[in-house]
């Protein structure tokens, strides 16, 4: 037996099917939002694509649908359990964050449970940011519901937060690209025991 073929016991269950679908659909909807936003906002792309009315409609509806996979995922016990892990911060998370600030990349300096402190903060922030985008987006969409000053302010918040989300999302995707085993976990639901012990030393699956 070659070393590559690890025995089944060496695989650790990380994400259930429901969780993976929540991630997949959220990523898809977010991707549509980002691409359509770029086509509305960047002059070169706007010129290339045109069809403003259609692009606006796609952007609006995918934005409206963005929270749906997460809300639907709440019926899954595994998903709810992971939300609890994401919410609670232990002392080790402080250690992890300090190491991250020092750019200390040693795994021993970065203790983590099922999710590391960076993942927890990302999850909480992107959830909040998505709702802010949804709220400001709805104000821009249904123009007759609010006074004009609100609408201008909503446009301002929507524009700048979109730019911020774009940068943070690029970081999220970039980190995933740099970690094939983490991607494997999100794709198939399981990761190697070795990876789990190294990257999430305090996790007890």
């Amino acid at each position: 037996m070659s070393l590559r073929e690890a025995p089944p016991a060496a695989r650790v269950r990380r994400f259930s099917r429901a969780e993976r679908w929540v991630h997949r659909l959220t990523a898809l909807l977010m991707g549509i939002c980002v691409v359509t936003a770029a086509c509305l906002y960047l002059p070169e792309l706007a010129e290339l694509v045109g069809r403003r009315q259609l692009v606006v409609r796609i952007h609006e509806w995918s934005g409206l649908a963005l929270p749906v996979p997460v809300l639907a995922g709440l019926v899954s016990r595994a998903f709810r359990a992971d939300l609890r892990f994401l919410n609670r911060f232990g002392p080790h998370d402080r250690v992890w964050l300090r190491a991250a600030l020092r750019r200390d990349k040693r795994a021993s300096a970065r203790p983590a449970g099922k999710f590391n402190a960076g993942q927890k903060i990302y999850a909480a922030w992107i959830a909040g940011a998505t709702l802010v985008m949804l709220g400001t987006g709805l104000i821009m969409w249904f123009t007759h519901l609010t006074p004009v000053m609100w609408r201008t302010s909503a446009t301002f918040v929507h524009d700048w937060l979109a730019l911020t989300i774009g940068i943070v999302l690029a970081g999220h995707v970039g980190m995933a690209l740099a970690d094939p085993e983490a991607r494997h976990g999100m794709r198939t639901g399981s990761v190697s025991r070795e990876w789990a012990d190294r990257e999430h030393s305090l996790w007890r699956p």
Binding site: R84, F85, L86, N87, R88, F89, G90, P91, H92, D93, P111, G113, K114, K120, I121, A123, A124, W125, A127, G128, A129, L131, V132, L202, W203, R204
Partner: peptide, 19 residues
């Protein structure tokens, strides 16, 4: 026992703070 079991709800604070 998971290490987060008795931790603070920082995630919720970040979420509400963003809102």
């Amino acid at each position: 026992e998971q290490p987060e079991e008795h931790g603070n709800p920082v995630g919720r604070r970040v979420f509400l703070g963003t809102l």
